[in-house]
Amino acid sequence: MSQKRPPADVYFFGTCLIDVFQPQAGLDAVTLIEREGVRVHYPDAQSCCGQPAYTSGEVAAARRVARAQLDLFPEAWPIVVPSGSCAGMMKHHWPTLFAGTPDEARAKEVAGRIVEFADFLLNTLDWQPTDLGQPLTLAVHTSCSARREMNTHVNGWALIDRLANVKRVVHEREAECCGFGGVFSVRHPDIAGAMVADKAAALKDSGAAQFVTADCGCMMNINGKLAKDGDTFAGEHLATFLLKRTGGAA
């Protein structure tokens, strides 16, 4: 393992979707990290990484919203983000977004401290859980950003594989996109609908009792589709699942 010495303090960037729609997932991630003895600081002035505007071509809007986040992390602590695509935006796209502006150096410095939640739990904290749950078969959906931009999909698998009573199954075309893509799912609902229908079916057909994902956008996309179809099969955020399996808050 390449784990570093765990830091005493970290920042937590909750992301806008988690803030308004799935706050429990954020809270569960914070609880898991604090249970490992790390102090979590949540800057109250945070909102969004700017990704929705950035991927829509509204670069100036993205820059304004992202700039409002740059001052929120004054200490040199890692910034943990419980969503692969937001982490990818902050780590890989902020330097480009601010290139040639007076904020470039600051954006790069902040970007350098971004760490995706599963990556942090596994590689920095070397999380060693005691699984208290019943035997369960589980499918995992990894966001495309986590997989292709952050290369952190293996971390989610590794964390789950540390749970003694959980059997992780692979679903058909696991590497394929769920069809969320932010504004894409609103702008091209026919195509996005076909994609999420296939993803939901593949997850269900995997034989798993439920699925987990570490990306709130994908989760709302897949769960929203399943609920629309009146399905009881559903997914949870990875943090929520890991916390439940290991006894909740300390």
Binding site: V20, F21, P23, V30, P189, D190, N221
Partner: peptide, 23 residues
């Protein structure tokens, strides 16, 4: 909700934001 509800149930905010829960 525009194209979203063609395939999904409406996006519904939680009872409290993470900002509030953290406070």
């Amino acid at each position: 909700q525009l194209g979203w509800t063609q395939n999904h149930v409406p996006m519904k905010p939680a009872p409290k934001t993470l900002h509030e829960l953290m406070r």
